[in-house]
Design a binder for these strands. Structure first.
Lengths: 188, 188
DNA sequence: AGTCTAATTAGAAATATATCTAAGTAGGTG
DNA sequence: CACCTACTTAGATATATTTCTAATTAGACT
């Protein structure tokens, strides 16, 4: 997740009433009017907050007759609340000394991969660097993966195959999913 | 974690520069001056942001000669970023139908426990309700636990013992620690 | 179409936050 | 002690955000 999505997420939860709304919705869906009543706010204010929460995909409104029921999107909450941890881990990975050097050696100034390292450890460092532009847990078509890889190197076939071999992603009827770092090949 | 600590946490991360600071510190400790330089802010502004981050215990400053190096407190970040998830789970637990009824039946309007249920399932519901005022992962002395329980019921000995028996907490030379929900006794 | 309900939009007022400059402080060093 | 560096505090200003009222819209029902 890029920095400004993360920012919007934390801003969205950085308001008492929105935090309360999330908790209310965790107990079950509610209409705008009900939320307004429980929090002692006007409908307009609730609309404002729901817009903020909707923008970061934490809630979804479903119309039923005249009234709109808001649901908490738990999966999204789960994903986004951990984003900062994933990001911190990623920063740590890319800044520990040896790795940084390898990445510098194998990528040129425009960010393209010069050659695929033959030494396993270096190769994995390079792969993990490549992976950083993809989203963990998301699914991609083979086309998307190949296009993505080709930004960095011509030989997308080899690299895509190595991604799977080393458990960076897994493939199921033509769909590729980026695994969480726990499953990745261990370096060393 | 209570609502307003959670609020302060998300507010702290709800600012671009503070988010950037967290990422910079993930790559290694930096002094105030270095942070100011990297972000193009004045020292005063950095002090302001560091105060906010310190208040929610996300960073710690260590003085070395004349300069203060700031460190990211990763454990705290880890704990706090998941708080909202834990809270949502807790809300869900206390509002699923049967549990709610049991809690209503066994607690009076002022919130005290009328009797300890003899039926195991109901008893566990009641215990989990009691536990909600304590912090998961924190350590408490026996005195603290007893005082806490006595808010709800005279027989703190029985209840404290049952807390341990059912893996809600664990005891080690007189110190009690609240376990995470995964370890709790399974209901049903 | 007319009317009702529930939600939204626009815009104003109040509040909170980020940022700066300037002055101050704490600790280290000659 | 005088001076330097690095950080902090105080106070001003600019910017963002929350909240409201009043007007508007979208859809359901007669």
């Amino acid at each position: 997740m890029q920095l400004d999505r993360m920012l919007e997420f934390h801003k969205a939860l950085g308001d008492v009433n929105r935090l309360k709304i999330v908790m209310l919705l965790a107990a079950g869906s509610l209409s705008g009017g009900e939320i307004a009543e429980k929090l002692g706010l006007t409908a307009a204010t609730v609309t404002h907050h729901m817009n903020v929460l909707r923008n970061v995909m934490l809630v979804k409104g479903v119309r039923e007759k005249n009234t709109i029921y808001f649901h908490l999107m738990e999966k999204e909450l789960h994903f986004k609340s951990q984003s900062i941890l994933r990001r911190v881990e990623q920063v740590k990975r890319t800044t520990d000394g040896e790795r940084g050097k390898v990445v510098q050696n194998f990528f040129d100034r425009s960010g393209r991969l010069k050659t695929i390292p033959s030494q396993r450890k270096k190769m994995l460092y390079v792969f993990e660097h490549l992976l950083e532009g993809l989203e963990i847990g998301r699914s991609y078509t083979e086309r998307e993966i190949d296009e993505y890889i080709r930004q960095f190197h011509e030989d997308h076939c080899t690299i895509r195959r190595e991604f799977v071999i080393n458990h960076y992603m897994y493939r199921e009827n033509g769909v590729y999913t980026l695994n969480p770092p726990e499953l990745w090949a261990k370096i060393e």
